[in-house]
Design a protein around this nucleic acid. Structure first.
Length: 107
DNA sequence: CCCCTGACTGTCG
DNA sequence: CCGACAGCCAGGG
């Protein structure tokens, strides 16, 4: 599924339009690999020629690589950015992923 | 098959 | 808000 994964992810990224921002988890889920947000980030880091600036963290935080560059590009596309965070035009940051950690219980 | 890494995510303190 | 812990996933050695 090696090629499958990156192919799917690339397809999802290509389907994005200017000004559209998604999270790693969304891309992974859309690609058919829920929970693979990490792998998505890794792919974006290794592959180039992809709209990496349209992908942000679930918390709205920009990438750790070049936040200034990403913010600049997003602003150029009409996406408001506030202090290193993206202002969701209309998107509930409600995503369930990763956080499968059990709460205050202890065995 | 085992172990480690990473542009992730959510909860607890 | 921030740091530590804990899961999950794909890839590479």
């Amino acid at each position: 599924m090696a090629a499958r994964f990156d192919e799917r992810v690339v397809a999802v990224l290509m389907s994005l339009r200017p000004g559209q921002v998604v999270t790693y988890g969304e891309v992974a889920e859309e690609a058919g690999f829920p929970g693979a947000a990490r792998a998505v980030g890794n792919l974006l880091a290794r592959r180039d020629g992809l709209p990496w600036w349209r992908v942000v963290a679930a918390s709205g935080r920009l990438v750790s690589g070049h936040p200034a560059e990403q913010a600049r590009r997003l602003r150029a596309e009409g996406v408001p950015v506030r202090d290193g965070r993206i202002v969701w035009a209309s998107r509930p940051p409600r995503r369930r992923t990763g956080g499968s950690r059990r709460r205050g219980a202890v065995p």
